[in-house]
Write a protein that binds this DNA or RNA. Structure first.
Lengths: 150, 150
DNA sequence: CTTACTGCAAACCATTTGCAGGTGC
DNA sequence: GCACCTGCAAATGGTTTGCAGTAAG
């Protein structure tokens, strides 16, 4: 259902951009493909270590940066947590994250398309909303009394 | 036009929450009030040092955290930059940031209200969109050829 | 007078960098 | 064979914490 990138297109994409195909790079992308969601560098390393235990965290970071430069990956920053990485999807999407239970759900780009258009109309601003992370309360947590966990 | 909080309401707010009014706390809030936009902890410290040069960065961080807990301040995280702090405005608003020239502009909450409503309708999700940061290209940079700076 | 708050210095954690060797093409 | 890429270890930068003293109420 996801299969953002098979080995074929992967090779083409990377080589097309002048990047080399190293096992480390493949494993990092494989980790991200398999886990489907967003991952921290540390989580990626863990997954990569399942394939090959000697890959270094510095290599992971270096490759994440490079792959972002080439728009193969994207990052999200949330306060007080490490950066979250994910494959740039053919189909752009966004996330809603519940601030209570931390559950994360995808929403299609179409949901925010109207916002993009409005920003262009009103401000001449070409928003690049590749994957926003929208905080709030999911239906479940909104139904509960109030922050009983605290 | 801004005056989010005068000394009167500030005192009431803080004391009402069981917090003490220390000069450091006042200066931090004053710095944020005067600069009106978002500031990093370091920038806040700089401004505070104009008032009193011995305040410590740890004090700034501690107070920022506390003031956030009490919803007097809010934070924004962007990849590869320090956290940005701002006063929680009576009037919620958002930012559009140009990824080329890094110019930041405010947009009123109304701009994203439709999105909130859609998320509630479609997902039962009560988005808390207090101040989003929307990346993209401002009109100026979009008009320029292509990334000539790179 | 109590206890929250402060300054200082040291610790922490995610991320980056310098370097010497390894490897894709 | 050349340049890019890697592992390692040390450095960085933003932020946090332990502690002993200070001050708000």
């Amino acid at each position: 259902m996801v299969a953002v990138m098979n080995n074929q297109t992967l090779t083409t994409t990377l080589r097309g951009k002048g990047l080399r195909i190293t096992p480390q790079r493949e494993m990092i992308l494989l980790a991200l493909t398999q886990s489907q969601g967003q991952m921290t560098a540390e989580q990626i390393l863990e997954k990569v270590h399942e394939y090959s235990p000697c890959v270094n965290i510095a290599t992971v970071y270096r490759n994440l940066d490079i792959l972002r430069d080439y728009e193969i990956l994207s990052v999200t920053a949330l306060p007080d947590r490490p950066l979250q990485w994910e494959l740039v999807d053919a189909e752009p999407h966004h996330h809603i994250v519940c601030t209570e239970c931390h559950r994360m759900e995808q929403v299609p780009h179409e949901t925010v398309a109207a916002l993009s258009e409005k920003l262009l109309r009103d401000y001449g601003f070409r928003a690049v909303l590749k994957h926003m992370t929208l905080p709030g309360l999911c239906a479940c947590c909104a139904a509960k009394p109030l922050d009983s966990a605290k």
